[in-house]
Structures are given as structure tokens and as C-alpha cells.
Write a protein that binds this DNA or RNA. Structure first.
Length: 422
DNA sequence: TAGAATT
């Protein structure tokens, strides 16, 4: 039986970029817990219209295996290389049976605050609680957090809407949180000495005999893309990780010339005092740069805009740098705690998520708001976005003004006092 | 030989 002929629905286990995919809700990517028809995905893969990635072939193999074996619901992995299981609905998926309102959000930008997290997820529905996890000593974000909704439907909507959202240089991951327990902590392994040819899928295959893999990763050279021979495996439970160390440390993977080393990964928040000191005193805080850093950044920005658009950035506060935080100065877009951007010509069905999607990649966004008609609840054609940093806001405006969204051309500028109030 | 995944 060909996969193309199979109408069976699978549940996507992770967010997969697939721009040519179009679901019945017009989503352009495969998203966590999204029901996916096998034939749709398979035809895209085989047609080559979905750019091949290292795990693409394995997706086909996995689907073919599942077809020949018949339906089962064994989730031995939810990493990117085994994105599908053959449970027919998210409700049957073992990973979410315990909680339907509490989400874990991973891969958040380093400088994202809890308020920004709440603002982002609050655009979906009412939040019961929200927490950004921070290092207890330094207060620095650990890059993940939790969002607990009042309504399970909003949690599901948040996964469908926000999983895979690009924020600055990160692609966030939104999934149901497992119930917290000691047994799931410290289950992350660091693996070194891997053959440079080993794929992520092969790494998972090697380790999956010891338990359910939550995430896997092989580090690669940023320039060449070649494996650095080291990686991480996160198991569902600590005991599974312990068994994997016993079974695989100092062992040669099939076909490998050298044995691998498998041990518990260091906790990234446990840094030496030296590293902490250098981090605290040497790295400039992007959010609150000193005057010199601000001027340097704006100088670069002005050059950038000049080169790109042949104009000086019209609203650059260079001339009055240093007084931008004083009250009573009328600077377009400056809204006390950030830069307010006016977005005009949005469609009636526009919602907050589209503003996050458009502006999030440009930098720290603290708030978005679609202005709606009180009676119809439809967008009145405009909205506002607040960004923390002037430079990032200016680049976003330069990039998105004139952007075609659907059949509309957007007008994007710093908010002025003459126009609508947020 | 190094990622920010359980509050």
C-alpha cells in the first residue's frame, strides 16, 4: 500500500516547518498535536516541494513502518526525527493525558520577561498563572516557562497558534507540561565521541531502547553544518537515563570505530563563579544599554537604513539622545516603557497572533493589540505593537511598512499622538 | 566536551 493512498490520520509530535503544507485550517506548517493526513505529507515529501532535511527520509520510513505494523500508540519518542505517531487524536496521546491547561514553553529568547510571556500567551485566552523560570542566583532567564490557562481549549489553541513562533533568533516550542515530579528531573544526557556521520535519528534509535526520548540534538559546526560529534538526549525519566548510561557509555555504536561517552549533562544554570562574574560584569545588557552602547547601536542602525533605503532613519532620536526618557518630550512612538508602533490596514479577522508573528522576529516585543469593534468584535483595521528597543522597532518598521498581508498592503510606522490611541 | 525541558 502506498502512503499516498492512505487516508489515515496521524498526530504530529513536533513543530515541523513545511511551508507548502496546507491543512484544512490553512496552516502552513505541521504543528504539535495537529492531526495530519499521511497522504498529504507523503506526497509533499515525495514531490520534493518540501525541502529535504536530514530527517525527511526517516519520516517516510517511520510512516511506512507504522503502516505495515498497523496502529499502535507507543510513543517511544517525540523528537523531530520521529514526528508522527499513529494515535488518531491528541486526546489519545500519552504526552498530554495528564494536563490540558498547563503548558511548558521552551526556547524563549534570553531577554524575554515574564510579563512579555504573559502578554504573548494572554492574547490567546485567560491565563490562570504564568511563570518564567529564572536562575535563582543570577535572576537570568533559563529560557523556558510555564503558562497555565483557565480553559483547556485555550491551551490547545496556544499550541496550535504559538508553537514554532519565531521570536528574535529563537523558535519557541509550546507543548503540554508533564506533571512535575522528581522522576522526570535530571534526565538529560551528554553524549560525546559520536561518529561524525551519525544522524539525529540514528542517535535516537541507539538510545530509544532505554526509554522515551523527549528531545535529542546533535551539535553541528555553525559554518559547515558538520556534526561536532557531541549531542544531548533527554529522557522522560531519570531512571531511563541511568539505564542508558549503564548500557551505552564506553560502547561502540553499530559500525563505529570508537566508543562513545555517555554521562549526565551539566545543568546549564550551574556555572562557575568565574563564569557568573564575567557574565554579570562583561556582557552588556541588551535591554538597558548605556548611552555609549545606545549611540553605537543607533550609528550602526542609521548606516544600515541608509544603505538599505537611502534615507536617514527619520525618527532617530540621535539628536536628542540621552533625554528620551524624560517626561514631556514628544517623540513619535515613544511610550514610556518602549516604542509603540502603529499598524494600519489589517483585515477584519486579524488577531494578535499575526502581530506577534510579524514583529517577534525583529526583537523584544512587550505587547500587541488589535483594535476591535465593540459590537462585532472584528478588527477595525489597525493595531499597535510595543517593542523595547528603538533599533529593533525601526528595523521592523522599515521591513514591514508596505508588507503585503493577504490582499492588503500594511502601513507601519511609529505611533504619533495625532493618530489613534492604544 | 556543552543545550537554557518541570515551576
Amino acid at each position: 500500500m502506498l502512503i499516498e493512498d492512505c487516508d489515515q490520520t496521524f498526530v504530529c509530535r513536533d513543530f515541523i516547518k513545511c511551508p507548502r503544507y496546507r491543512s484544512n485550517t490553512s496552516r502552513r506548517h505541521l504543528q504539535t498535536n495537529m492531526a495530519v493526513r499521511l497522504c498529504d505529507v507523503a506526497s509533499l515529501l515525495r514531490s520534493g516541494s518540501w525541502a529535504p532535511e536530514p530527517w525527511t527520509g526517516q519520516v517516510i520510513a517511520t510512516m511506512e513502518t507504522q503502516l505495515s505494523n498497523g496502529p499502535t500508540c507507543n510513543n517511544t519518542s517525540n523528537g523531530p526525527s520521529t514526528i508522527l505517531n499513529n494515535c488518531s487524536s491528541p486526546v489519545e496521546s500519552g504526552s498530554i493525558e495528564d494536563s490540558k491547561t498547563n503548558l511548558i514553553v521552551n526556547y524563549l529568547p534570553q531577554n524575554m520577561t515574564q510579563e512579555e510571556l504573559k502578554s504573548l500567551f494572554g492574547s490567546i485566552g485567560e491565563i490562570e498563572s504564568c511563570k518564567l523560570v529564572r536562575d535563582k542566583i543570577t535572576g537570568q532567564s533559563l529560557g523556558y516557562g510555564f503558562v497555565n490557562y483557565v480553559d483547556p481549549k485555550d491551551a490547545e489553541k496556544a499550541i496550535n497558534t504559538l508553537n514554532g513562533l519565531r521570536l528574535q533568533t529563537k523558535t519557541i516550542k509550546v507543548s503540554y507540561a508533564r506533571p512535575s515530579s522528581a522522576s522526570i528531573r535530571d534526565a538529560n544526557l551528554y553524549v560525546s565521541g559520536l561518529p561524525k556521520t551519525m544522524t539525529q535519528k540514528e542517535l535516537e534509535q541507539l538510545f530509544s531502547q532505554y526509554g522515551r526520548i523527549i528531545t535529542s540534538r546533535i551539535l553541528v559546526d555553525q559554518v559547515t553544518g558538520v556534526s561536532r560529534g557531541v549531542g544531548f538526549i533527554r529522557f522522560d525519566r531519570r531512571v531511563e537515563a541511568e539505564e542508558a548510561i549503564k548500557g551505552l557509555n564506553c560502547q561502540k555504536p553499530p559500525g563505529a570505530a570508537e566508543p562513545i561517552t555517555v554521562k549526565f549533562a551539566n545543568n546549564p544554570s550551574q556555572k562557575t563563579s568565574q563564569a557568573l562574574l564575567s557574565q554579570l560584569y562583561q556582557s552588556p545588557n541588551r535591554r538597558y544599554p548605556g548611552p555609549l552602547a545606545q549611540q553605537a547601536q543607533r550609528f550602526r542602525l542609521d548606516n544600515l537604513l541608509n544603505m538599505a533605503y537611502g534615507v536617514k532613519s527619520r525618527f532617530s532620536p540621535m539628536a536628542i539622545d540621552g533625554v528620551t526618557s524624560l517626561a514631556g518630550i514628544n517623540i513619535p512612538g515613544h511610550a514610556g516603557s518602549g516604542w509603540c508602533i502603529f499598524v494600519y490596514n489589517l483585515a477584519p479577522d486579524a488577531d494578535e497572533s499575526i502581530l506577534w508573528q510579524m514583529f517577534g522576529p525583529f526583537g523584544a516585543v512587550t505587547n500587541v493589540k488589535v483594535i476591535r469593534d465593540f459590537n462585532t468584535n472584528k478588527c477595525k483595521g489597525f493595531g499597535f505593537v510595543t517593542m523595547t528597543n528603538y533599533d529593533e522597532a525601526a528595523v521592523a518598521i522599515a521591513s514591514l511598512n508596505g508588507y503585503r498581508l493577504g490582499d492588503r498592503v500594511l502601513q507601519v510606522s511609529f505611533k504619533t499622538n495625532k493618530t489613534h490611541k492604544a
